[in-house]
């Protein structure tokens, strides 16, 4: 595990980085139009990181992305989620202040089927993004910590 797997696995995992990242970001960004959202998209991106850890060895990957930075990203995601909830505090907590406001993400849509407009949704895309970042960092941190644990010989 420490020095990674064979060259075939390494090459294929490098080829798969881009499609998996783009798919995860697609699931996160289109969370208010298609099935998906912050939690599944973050899990897809965390799966990409787990694939890299398995292919290249977790000890080597730890030099580029450590526990501390993952913890920071996770805290920032949760703080961003709470901050977006707090911005609309003048109406109520978790108020959707961007919906139907004709600004960013503020397109008003009415009841019924439509082809799906990315510019709608109010604060929901922002919250999806924050939750996606948080879930990505949390699951990556759990996998990294579990892979690099070595039992002390006592």
């Amino acid at each position: 595990m420490n020095e990674g797997m064979s060259a075939i696995v390494k090459t294929m995992s490098v080829l798969l980085i881009m499609p998996m990242t783009i798919f995860g970001m697609y699931v996160i960004i289109h969370g208010h139009l298609t099935p998906g959202g912050g939690f599944p998209g973050g899990a897809v991106m965390a799966t990409m990181m787990a694939m890299l850890f398995v292919a290249f060895g977790a000890e080597k990957s730890k030099k580029f992305l450590g526990k501390g930075s993952l913890s920071t990203i996770e805290s920032l995601g949760l703080l961003a989620f709470a901050a977006v909830a707090f911005i609309g505090i003048q109406a109520t907590f978790f108020s959707n202040f961007l919906a139907n406001s004709a600004s960013y993400f503020g397109m008003s849509i009415s009841y019924g089927p439509n082809p799906g407009y990315l510019n709608s949704g109010g604060v929901l895309p922002l919250m999806n993004l924050a939750v996606g970042i948080e879930v990505f960092a949390a699951i990556t941190a759990i996998v990294l910590v579990m892979l690099t644990y070595r039992e002390e010989k006592s």
Partner: peptide, 25 residues
Amino acid sequence: PIFTNTPNLTMVLATPQALTLTSIV
């Protein structure tokens, strides 16, 4: 319960699905 290009407007209940997402995480 997703309105993007939906074929018909009979939809399953939305709240149990949201609670199931919470439960999975």
